[in-house]
Every structure is written in C-alpha cells, then in structure tokens.
Design a protein around this nucleic acid. Structure first.
Lengths: 233, 233, 233, 233
DNA sequence: AATGAATGAGAATTCATTCAT
DNA sequence: GATGAATGAATTCTCATTCAT
C-alpha cells in the first residue's frame, strides 16, 4: 500500500549550536503535537514549520522530507516509551508469582500507552512500515516482555502452552491492540484502566499457566512465519 | 482526528434504472479493488471513475464526495462479511461443547478475514471513524458472537468471568486485531491458519471457562464506558 | 548534465472536444512564446498556464510534467520547420549547378531559422537532450540535405572530399551553429542575410568541389563515431 | 531575455591575505568542478561552499551573488585558455605555408577545448551573455587568430575572400561550434581528433585561399552588424 | 443522465541570500 | 573575517469537486 518510493530519510545535519538544537526540538515537538491532536492526514510540513515557529526552509535544513521528520518523531517516541518501561519495571525486582509478574507487565504497558495515545497510534500505523518495525518488535520482545520471559524460564513447571510461537504472536498483538483500542476511547477512567489490567492479566495467566485441558487443534507444525515482521514494501 | 468537515455522506440518488445500478456497482467495485490493491492513499476519485469505466461526473451523481464512496464500500463490505458469517454459522446448529462453539466462531472469523485483508484493514482504519463504528460493533456483538453468547447463556455453570463487560471489550479487540495482523502477514499458510484458530480458541476458552482461581484485581465497579464507540468526529 | 530523472513525457490525454483542443493549443502557444521571448530559465508551468489563460490544473491534464510540455513544443516546432523546408525546396526542381544547389539549401536553412530564433535555440539546447535528437538529426540529413546529397550523388566527378564522414559532421555543425549565431544577433538586416548565405555557400562549395590540393593530414582511419548522436543520458 | 535583474557581479573584496586567496581559490575550483561534472543546473551556492570546504557566508564575502561566482570562473577559464594558446603558438615562429599556419591554429584550438569540455560549454552558454562576450571575442580575434591574420597580412596574394567581415564571422562560429560538438561527443579518439583538425583545416584553407571562382552573391554592402557583440540583456 | 474539461487551493521541496553570533 | 542557522519566495505537481454541454 501507499508509500512507493523510499528516499533518504536520514537526517540532514546534526545540530551543533544551541540555536539549531532548539529549532530541531521545536520541529519534533510540533510534529508530535500535530500527530497527537490531528493525525497524520493533517500533518503538513508547512504546518509543522509554522507551529514550530520556524521557516519552512529551516525544516528542510534538518529533515530531507516529511517521512524523515515523522520517523525521527517515531524513534524518539519509542525510545521514550522504552525508557519509561525500563524505569517502571526496574523497581519490581522482588520475586513474585506468575499473576503478579504478568500483572506488572500489563500495568506498565497500559500506563505507557496512556501518555500520547493518538501519537502512538499514528506512529504505529505509519512509521512502523518504514523499517523501524524490527527494532520495535525486538524491543517489545526483549525489553518489555523480559521479566515475563524470565519468570517463565524460571518456573517452567507452572507454564504450559501448546504452540509457543503462535502464542507469542497472538498475545503480542492481542494485548497491544486491546490497549490501543482502550486508550483511544473517550472515557479512560482510572477504574477502567484497573479493570483493563485485571482482565488482560487474567486472560494471559489463564492462557499460559499449566492446565490439564488440551487445545482442540493441531499445534506446532511447519515453521510458522506469518508473524514475522513483513518487509512492508 | 483528521477530517475536519463532515459533509453529506448520504447517497445522492437511489438508483432505479438498471443502468444506474450498473454504474454504481462498477464504482463500488472499482473503489474496493483500489482499496484492496493499493490502499487508501492511492485512492482518488478520478482513478475510481476511470477504473469503473465511468466519467468523473457520474461518480458525483451518485456520491456527494469521496468519503461517501468509501463509506458505501464499507457498508457493503461489512454486510457481505456479516452474511458470510451467518451462512457459515447457521449450519452448526448441532449442540456442541464450549470449545467447539468458540472454535467455530473463531474459525469463521478467520476465514472471513482472509477474503480481502487489505480492504478490510483500510476500511477498519478509515471508515469506522465516520460513524459506521456503531453498527459494526453491534454486528460483531449481536451477530457474530451470537452463537457464543447463546452457548454462554445456555450453560452459565461452565462460564466464569469476573468483569463481563470488560471481558467482551478485550476479547473483541484482541481477536480482531490478532486476525488482522495475521492475514496482513506475508505467509498465510493453511497450517498457520489452523494454528491461529487453535491458539485463539484455547486462549478464549481458558479465559472464560469456570475456574477456581480468582482474578487479581477489582472487578465490576462503576459503569464502564471505555469501549463505547466514541463519536470520533 | 542536468536532468537526472526521465519520467513519462508522453501526453496525458488526446483532446477530443473542441474546447480541449483549444486549451492544448493555447498551452503550446504560450510555452513557445515564453521560450521565444524569455528563454527556458523563465519558463514555469504556472506562467505558461497563466499566459494561456488556463488553470494550472488544466495544464497537467494534458502534460504530465514540464519536460513533456517543452518536448511537445519541440516536436511541433521541428515539424513545422521541416514542413517549411519541404515546401521551399520542392519548388527548385529545375536542375542546377553545385553552387546553385548549395546556395538554395543554405538560403532555405537561414530563412527557416529566422522565424523563431530564440525558441529554436532554447529547444536545441534543451529538448534535443531528451531523445528527439535522433529524429532531428535524421531530418536534417534526410530531408534538408537531401537535394544536396542528390546533387552530389548525381555529379560525383565534381565532388572531392577526403574524409566524407567527418566532412558531414563538420559541415552540419558549422552551418547550423553559424546560422544560430547570426539569427540570435541583434541586427538581422536583409543584406546581412544575403551575405551570410553567400559566404556559407562559398565555404561549402570550395570545400567539397573537386580540387587538386590534398588535405594535410590523415583521412579515413578507424570507424569514426564522434558525430553519432550521443546517448545523452 | 531571461534574467531580469542585473546586480553587482563585481567582486566584493580583493583578497590580500594568504588565507583569503586560498578561500577564493577553493571556491573557484569547486565551482569549476561542479560545472564540469554536473552542469549549470546542478550548481548551487551551498554546494559550492560545501565542496570548497568553506561556509556559505564566506562565499558571499567574496562574491555578491551566484552570477559573479560563475563569471569569475569564466574569466579565469578563458584566461587560462588564452595562456595555453599563447604558449603553444609562440613556438611556431618558423615561417610556414598557409595550410601549416591554419593547421597549427586549428590543432591548438581543438587541444585547448579538450581540456574541460563541459565547463567550457557551460560557460559559453551562460557567462557570455553577461558581458564577457566582448573581451572574449576580442581574445579570439586578437590572440588566437593573430598568427593566422599575420600570415594573411604577410601573404595577401595567396588569400582571396569576397566578404572578409562575414568570412571572419562565419569561420569563427563554424570552427568553434564544430569543436564544441566534437569534444562533447562520447568518442573522442586521438584519430578522431586528427581527422577533425585535418577536415577543418582543409575547409578553412580552401575557403580563403586564392581561387578564380567567384562567389555567387553580393559581397560587402552596407555595414555588417550581425556579428557585433550584442548587448544581450 | 452522462460527460469530461476545467478549476485552484494546497502540498512538498529548493535554493539564493541575509545576518546574528 | 568566518560561520552556519535561518529565511521565504518560488516552483512543480495533485486531486477533490464543479459545471457547461
């Protein structure tokens, strides 16, 4: 779909002087703001420059094109999100049960998504198709789900999943999308958030914890590839 | 977000004559085709008219603007999907267990999503924001999940969910999004599809079936609103 | 140099209705006019549209880009030139001597170049690099110089050139460029034109007519390629 | 035609210090290089400054605008060319025949044009329109053709041209343009060069040497002005 | 009803030039 | 003197929509 060509995207100049850093900062902020408030469709380079209080020429001093601008915002956003996740998860060093561990991860995920929901949604739709997907997928698996995976690895006797590969695929998308849908809704009440975390946690725990019942259909099978990050043109 | 104005969208004339019907049909088909093959970004009214073998003037005889055109395609698409679901689910009148019932619903959902994945994705992203969301959400809940709800209603002793409202919200989005991600992937192998159905079914069943373990967090609480279809401008 | 990319250039729609023919005509005329009066550097699509009394959108209905527009003007210009040459040369069917034949060709060449000198110059600089060069070179050799070549073929005993291939290269460029320089000058007085024709004719005739003196340097040699129309990017 | 405004063009400061000279030198070199490798269209002041390893601000310390920069390169180029011509022609002090003299001049002209063909072409197209034409025309006539004119003056009995003024005009442009076309071609083989020199020499000699045949058209006539350096723009 | 020519606001991007530091 | 950040007019091209025929 969409984007046919894929030119530079790499930044044009690394700002040295204080003034240029401010300019770039203003541009990124303006872009994020428009993305959050109005969506990708209303994002134009002229509007970004205007909102940043900068001339259109200055924008192009730093970003070779619109995509590069959005990409830069994306990288920054995901890095911030990642940092936030790290920070919050670092505290919970205390050993805990499966439910507590899953609950922590889910709670933190929901919390981080509450920050700039529409920006996140716009970036997820647009930026990930540019090649950032890999890094991001890696982040989720490695950083975010690390405590969960650590627990699972430490307590194999509590876990039972028939088709681990597909389970990861399903859980990843299911949790992510549900949180997206929730934060994009109008009424994000604290209690609603708590209920979401509780429900998601229950779903996950019941899904992966040891259980005598078996799944109704074949498991394993040939190498599964559908969830691999596609090279989206 | 996005679209500021919200003009007509209602159809301009109800076609009576055969020729009119053909023209409209061609326009809808062309729109769907471009949406499926090239995405919303490449969809222009002129291209639609051209592909439909119709003049651009005629297009505007039937649709007051681009959005109305896409909306019409969306309604038709979701109606077709709904019909397909009905047809497939009607057969399974035979009483069956929870796992079978859930499995049937999931299998049918996956099957219907395999039809025109990109069209469906484009419509989900774009059209739902126009007001169709309500109807569509209703469809899912009422039609698609009806057999599931019927089973649940018939066998309350097998089911146990702490927060039914939120559970429906979570399951709806989780299943939908996972299927989306799957069908939009490159490799949709038959075995992959079977594994997806199996895994989703397992997740759902384990989630809702009676279970002694209790959820870790508060349930119920104040009226939950987050999943209510927002009036997304 | 210059033009890196080389997109479509082919016309977008062939006008059917009278109105569209008028529009295209106006666009071509406006382009030629600006080219003649102000040169390629001052030619912008917006100015063309404005001068043609047409919206910029209409311009792009017919021409996919600026180059296509200029190319169309070029083709038309060279075709007109060719027609003019044909017309004038057709008359001189009467057999004549070498000097008369050469003189006729030169006179006609000068006359045709007097029409729109700057347009011709601009097109020669710009358009020929797009691929029209071949056709145009062919025209010159085949159409314009045909009577000359016919005479030469008919009277081999009068002609003597050591290196025919290079001689053609030299004469072609020499005559063309001299005429260019002349018509681009400010004062094109009738007498000046007559003197130019006379001088060029003398130069050519003395150059190719039988002459006992031999050239001072090697002739022939390996296949000469320099005058072949270069594949200009 | 073309450029409406005609600003300064005169150098901003005459560099005294060694550093200034280096900077200017680098700028001129960079400009010439880009002109030769990429053509006038790709020449931007920012690129020049960058390639010269100098800030854009510094560029404008020395050159008031782009044209002044190109003009400076032009002057230098033509001066170098002139020096080269001088050097080569100085050697041939020995008296020689007409053919030898003409051949020497032509050979040297071709040789000097082989140096930076595209730079020369770009400058001929662009710079000459700025007012340098006079000086340059003078150079050609006075310096380059001096030995030829000297020979002609010394041996009037060997020469016969009906319309000397026009003959100079024609020969100047004819030779120049032919050499241009040749060096801009793809295949500049040594043998090709020799053949070009031979052919041009033959053409010139046969044209101007005493010959009983008379020209077919009026000579002399009213003051001829076409070749006078036009006040272009 | 249909046609398709025409429209023009608006979007992305370039580049010569200025000026505060 | 030098730097390089900033400027913004100008340019190419798109596309939803209108309206005369």
């Amino acid at each position: 779909m969409a984007t046919r060509k894929k030119p530079d995207v790499s930044l044009r100049k690394t700002p040295n002087q204080a003034r240029s850093i401010d300019t770039m900062e203003a541009l990124l902020r303006a872009t994020a703001h428009i993305l959050e408030k109005e969506g990708y469709d209303r994002l134009t380079t002229n509007r970004v420059a205007e909102k940043a209080g900068v001339s259109i020429g200055s924008l192009y001093q730093y970003f070779p094109n619109k995509d590069a601008l959005v990409l830069a915002v994306g990288e920054r956003h995901f890095d911030e999100m990642r940092a936030l996740l790290h920070e919050r998860l670092e505290r919970n060093v205390a050993p805990a049960g499966l439910t507590e561990t899953v609950g922590d991860v889910v709670a933190v995920l929901v919390a981080t998504h509450t920050k700039n929901p529409r920006l996140h949604a716009a970036l997820t739709e647009r930026v990930l198709r540019v090649g950032l997907l890999q890094r991001r997928a890696a982040h989720l698996a490695e950083d975010i789900y690390r405590p969960l995976l650590a627990y699972v690895a430490a307590h194999p006797e509590e876990i039972s999943v028939d088709d681990p590969e597909m389970a990861v695929f399903v859980l990843t998308h299911a949790v992510e999308a549900t949180i997206h849908a929730f934060v994009l809704g109008d009424a994000i009440s604290p209690s609603g958030e708590a209920r979401l975390v509780a429900t998601l946690t229950t779903m996950i725990v019941r899904f992966i914890e040891k259980n005598e019942k078996k799944s109704p259909l074949p498991s394993g099978g040939p190498p599964f590839t559908a969830h691999r990050p596609r090279r989206l043109r």
